[in-house]
């Protein structure tokens, strides 16, 4: 390697290292403070490392044990993911296997819906829910959240079903299947990885959603983790950093695991925006 090459390599290292530091610091602090019983905003190696913060999550915060929020999030996200997966697959099936008037307009509309900032919807939904008596209800949250996530999962479902040639279904129909049978016996098994991906992505998207529950769930015991987490910010600016960090890590784990699983697919999805 020449001298110029070596200097270039050092510059590359410095750049990558600063990127790692900038993006790593908040994450590292989160882990360190979760392990520190005396955690504070200060960036420090804990004098004693313990799991105390995690254990103390059993104690109620604002009258609700924090794990309840995780349970709520699990229920809500499971329902949302299931609803949007079914609705997306059904709709994508029609969109990819039939042609009808207004089809491309519909796909375009879904792109538009997908890009609407959630707050734009959360505000009127709150107003409507106050009228409909759906404030503070899990089903109200689940339905609104499903609608919010649906355009996103729809696009994935559509691209996924499009990648499975309709010829398979046609062959099955000639072989003796009904149209539905061909879909169930041939396309659905082929789409299984895609369906799992959609479900998982919908699950974590719903899991992380904040604006909608913030606006329509006001009862602490019904809150999902994203909103319940607010209660660790005690009154008068007193924050229980250790417990909050511990809770944050637990709350983030499912998301990290899911992205580990679907990573490849996700990158392909983004790549799809620029390559063909």
């Amino acid at each position: 390697m020449g001298k110029a090459g070596f200097i270039a390599l050092i510059i590359l290292w410095l750049f990558l290292a600063s990127v790692a530091v900038f993006f790593g610091i908040p994450l590292v602090w989160l882990i360190l403070s979760a392990l520190d019983p005396n955690a504070s905003p200060e960036f420090k190696i804990p004098s004693t490392i313990s799991m105390e913060n995690f254990i103390r999550l059993g104690e109620p915060v604002s009258g609700v044990p924090p794990y309840m929020w995780i349970v709520n999030s699990t229920i809500i996200s499971t329902l949302v993911a299931t609803i949007v997966t079914i609705a997306s697959i059904l709709a994508a099936y029609v969109l990819t296997r039939y042609s009808f008037k207004g089809q491309s307009a519909m796909l375009t509309a879904f792109i538009v819906f997908r890009l609407i900032p959630p707050l734009i919807l959360a505000l009127p939904i709150m107003i409507l829910y106050r009228m409909w008596g759906m404030m503070n209800t899990i089903h109200g949250l689940v339905l609104a959240m499903s609608a919010l996530i649906l355009p996103f999962t729809m696009m994935i479902a559509e691209s996924f079903l499009k990648s499975i040639p309709a010829t398979y279904e046609e062959a099955a129909m000639v072989d003796g299947c009904t149209r539905l049978g061909a879909f169930l016996k041939i396309t659905l098994p082929l789409a299984a990885p895609g369906i799992a991906t959609i479900w998982l992505l919908a699950f974590v998207t719903s899991w992380s959603q904040f604006v909608l529950p913030l606006m329509i769930i006001r009862t602490p015991s019904l809150m999902p983790a994203s909103v319940g987490l607010q209660f660790f910010f005690g009154e008068y600016g007193r924050v229980e950093y250790g417990k909050l960090s511990a809770f944050s890590i637990l709350y983030s784990l499912p998301v990290l695991i899911v992205f580990l699983i679907v990573q490849k697919y996700l990158k392909r999805g983004i790549a799809g925006l620029v390559t063909r």
């Binding site: 040639p165 010829t167 046609e170 129909m173 000639v174 003796g176």
Partner: peptide
């Protein structure tokens, strides 16, 4: 519908069901 016509078809792309072994592909009809 196709299934009631008792016809068989060979497709340009063959349309062999990717998730079935050759045996099951042939046995499917």
């Amino acid at each position: 519908p196709p299934r009631k016509r008792d016809v068989a078809m060979v497709f340009q792309t063959y349309a062999l069901y990717p998730h079935m072994k050759v045996y099951d592909n042939i046995a499917f009809p």
